[in-house]
Write a protein that binds this DNA or RNA. Structure first.
Lengths: 197, 197
DNA sequence: ATCAAAACGGATGCTGCCTCCGTACGCATT
DNA sequence: AATGCGTACGGAGGCAGCATCCGTTTTGAT
């Protein structure tokens, strides 16, 4: 009636119900079997037909993006804590760790993530979140550069890639020691004059 | 007849013929469509049935390993050249580059490679080649450490992982500039006191 | 020329993807 | 309480790829 604000029919109840059921089931399956898990199995276990799954989430990536969206709340929570830190170098380090854990939540996640990060695919539902993360990383980098802890040549994108890499390697089943050595190597790469052995 | 050297029937001609046809076709398909390419399509284009393919190469990885074996000749050729270099730091750098290019020959190759590298799967046909490469990398690392160009804390395995990572990122379609920045970051990570920006 | 071993190859069963359309459900209206 | 309409459901079905099995063909040896 009033200007432009069309009076819509109230959305059906089963829509929201199915959507959340799908998201929960999908998250469980992604956790257990990686991002390549069978969507048919997800649908069946959520108690819906394949058609319903595909209507809610037209592609695997759409489903993945939706699941990640709920998961990202945890990330922003950590971000709040990190922003409290006085030392920008420490903040950067913890932020990288937080991203890495976020990326390695599901095995195989880094691949679609990288595919989305290279943009040029505005329809990819993961593109926006990716660029948000890169920008956030760049902020931490710049803050740490101002205090002289990080080389000026480093960009947020570089460390985003590095975090993705570590997450990818973790997903391939590498042992924790190798991962720690690699993290150290990367840290030596972005930190200024860190001359110890 | 003579001691123990059992006189075997001469192997059939079509075996070798089919094997090489499969390898050539497989390499082409791996190059064009990545390691996930359809094996049925490979068999068809090689002019054999699926059964023949699977008899020659029981798993996708076996086929992949065989193709990589022929490709590795190129790598050892480069290795000979690298061993001529006087500067161990330069040798290490070039060796890493050579590995990286070897790993990124087919899109998706780094994943099965990493799966094989974590050993514990002696039946995986890629395991042995992987460990050979890690050992070779360690040699270059140690040589460069003797001249003080590389941090003592670095191990061959670390740089093997790093090379895999870069190859993986390359395979996801990253632009060349990002790759170069990442390589630089890693180099800053393993080199001793490289204090410039 | 014949034989037996060895290799072939395609038919087959299976799993997963994704679409399409008849059906059922839920909200609004009476 | 009953009716009607639009929305959402869900499963059947077509397709592609994997991996196996077994009747048939090829090949080397005699």
């Amino acid at each position: 009636m009033s200007a432009g604000e069309q009076r819509e029919r109230k959305p059906r109840a089963d829509v929201q119900r199915n959507r959340t059921a799908l998201l929960e089931t999908a998250q469980r399956h992604f956790l257990q079997h990686g991002v390549g898990t069978s969507l048919e199995a997800v649908a069946k276990e959520a108690g819906v037909g394949p058609g319903t799954l595909y209507r809610h989430f037209p592609t695997r990536e759409a489903l993945l993006a939706a699941v990640l969206h709920t998961r990202s709340e945890e990330l922003v929570a950590r971000q709040a804590g990190i922003d409290q830190l006085a030392d920008p170098a420490q903040a950067l380090e913890q932020w990288l760790r937080a991203m890495e854990e976020y990326f390695s939540a599901f095995s195989g996640l880094p691949d679609p993530l990288m595919a989305a990060a290279r943009a040029q695919e505005p329809d990819n539902p993961l593109t926006i979140p990716c660029h948000t993360l890169i920008t956030a990383t760049d902020q931490y980098v710049q803050a740490a550069q101002l205090t002289g802890h990080v080389r000026d040549s480093v960009r947020g994108n570089d460390l985003f890639l590095a975090a993705c890499s570590v997450a990818w390697i973790k997903g391939t089943g590498a042992d924790e020691e190798s991962l720690d050595r690699l993290r150290t190597l990367i840290a030596s790469g972005y930190r200024r004059q860190d001359t110890q052995a």
